[in-house]
Amino acid sequence: MSLTGIVSIALGAILIENFIFSQFLGICPFLGVSRKVDTALGMGLAVTFVMALASVFCWLVNTLLLVPLNLTYMQTVAYILVIAALVQFVEMFLKKSIPGLYQALGIYLPLITTNCAVLGVVLLNTQKNYDFLSSLVYGVTGGIGFLVAIVLFASVRERLDLTADCPRSFEGFPIALISAGLLALAFMGFSGLKVF
């Protein structure tokens, strides 16, 4: 695995094929947890963490178990199982070892179980035939892409709430959806970006 390959995967996951803005995965937490920058940051970090772990474990399950046994058609089910167990485990671990982080993440940690961006990253890893290192890089950077997107969007929403002279019928959720669309359009600008 060359350095160029890693950089290419990273830039692709963060900017060009951003999970939220160009693949439209993980929209639920993106809209639900983006009211404040602080919580958005917490959610983004938690998702990054789980995505990285899920990439590693799902890669292991896939290469060591599903592929040798010709069970690749069970990937989705197996991955869901892995992710759910993983999130549970991470929650227990954090509660015991890092209570501060556990408090900060709060309800968002269990919510990640049903975050389709996490399932998306592991399925894409398989689809693209990534090796172990590439899977890990794709998981981490995919999470960072999510983090960037949700923090950007939360900052926009904070300003919208505070300063925008928004028509009454658009207040709240409608204007949030519109600004999410505009942000996605802006991220389309990266689609022409070619790495090496």
């Binding site: 178990l65 599903l66 069970l71 069970m74 197996a78 167990a85 549970q88 485990f89 227990m92």
Partner: peptide
């Protein structure tokens, strides 16, 4: 085989948890 593998995987994770 699929049942066994997934069941085993589930049981393994359950035990782990």
């Amino acid at each position: 085989l699929a049942v066994a593998v997934l069941g085993g995987l589930g049981a393994f994770f359950g035990l782990l948890l």
